[in-house]
Amino acid sequence: PAALYWVILPLAGLSVLAAANLFRTRIGRAFIAIRDRDISAEILGIPLLRYKLMSFGLSAFYAGLAGGLFAYFFRSITPESFPLVYSIFFLAAVIVGGMGTILGGILGAAFMTMVPEVLKLAVGLASPWLPNAVAILSPVRTVVFGLLIIGFLIFEPHGLAEIWRRIRRFFHLWPFRT
């Protein structure tokens, strides 16, 4: 429903803004130090247990917010609401977008949402020649997700966020590049 869209969009925007600004604070810098090298962070005086528990609580808050909106949108939640394909989808979105970046999460989610739509379009175009093309769609989607995960891990480990940074850097220096 359109009314629910105008509830979810500002909450998502505020959540992204809060997460982006978190990295500018002392807590965010501690999170980054622990992510990069936790032993070195502990030597620098960052209490690991405290910040790891804080990170867990913050991620639980975001997951709870998303779960609450999901439950409100679908009106009921059962274990069948979360098949294995969703886990593969979320893993692929994080890896394809770029691990450890907020922009990567957004780009990965947008890209991985478009992949099934492109596959549906391809199946629709192939259905006159392949009568059982619709039955092939589900396994092919899982295989494509797996191939995207492997391909991005091998060829672009920093994901779409790094590709976006390279494109921006190129056009930022474009007239002066040789």
Rank of each mutant, 00 (worst) to 15 (best):
L4H: 10
Y5H: 14
I8C: 13
P10V: 09
L11S: 12
A12F: 15
L14Q: 01
S15G: 15
S15Q: 02
V16P: 02
A19N: 04
L22Q: 06
F23C: 01
F23Y: 14
R24V: 02
R24H: 13
R29M: 13
F31D: 02
D36E: 15
R37P: 00
S40D: 10
A41I: 05
E42L: 00
E42T: 08
P47E: 10
L48Y: 14
R50M: 09
R50I: 08
K52H: 10
M54S: 11
M54G: 05
G57C: 08
G57D: 00
G57Y: 01
F61Q: 03
Y62W: 10
Y62V: 10
Y62E: 00
A63R: 03
G64W: 08
G64F: 04
A66G: 12
G67D: 07
G68F: 09
G68D: 04
F70D: 03
A71V: 03
F73L: 08
F74K: 04
R75S: 12
T78D: 12
E80H: 10
F82Y: 04
F82V: 07
L84I: 10
Y86H: 01
Y86D: 01
I88Y: 00
F89T: 05
F90N: 01
L91I: 14
A93G: 06
A93L: 07
A93Q: 06
A93I: 07
T101W: 05
T101M: 04
L103C: 00
L103F: 04
G104T: 10
G105M: 08
I106L: 14
I106F: 10
G108V: 08
A109C: 12
A109S: 14
F111E: 06
M112D: 02
V115F: 04
V115Q: 03
P116C: 05
E117K: 07
E117M: 06
L121N: 11
L121P: 07
A122D: 08
G124E: 09
L125H: 11
S127T: 15
S127M: 14
P128H: 10
W129F: 15
P131S: 14
A133N: 06
A133C: 09
V134T: 13
A135Q: 13
I136R: 10
I136P: 02
I136K: 11
L137Q: 15
L137S: 12
S138E: 14
V140Q: 07
V140W: 09
V140A: 15
R141Q: 15
T142Y: 13
V143E: 04
V143K: 10
V144I: 15
G146L: 15
L147W: 13
L148R: 11
I149L: 12
I150Y: 13
G151F: 11
G151S: 14
L153R: 11
I154F: 09
I154W: 09
H158C: 00
G159N: 05
E162N: 12
E162A: 14
R165M: 06
R166S: 07
I167T: 07
I167C: 03
I167K: 02
R168V: 02
H172W: 03
H172D: 00
L173P: 00
L173Y: 01
R177L: 03
T178R: 08
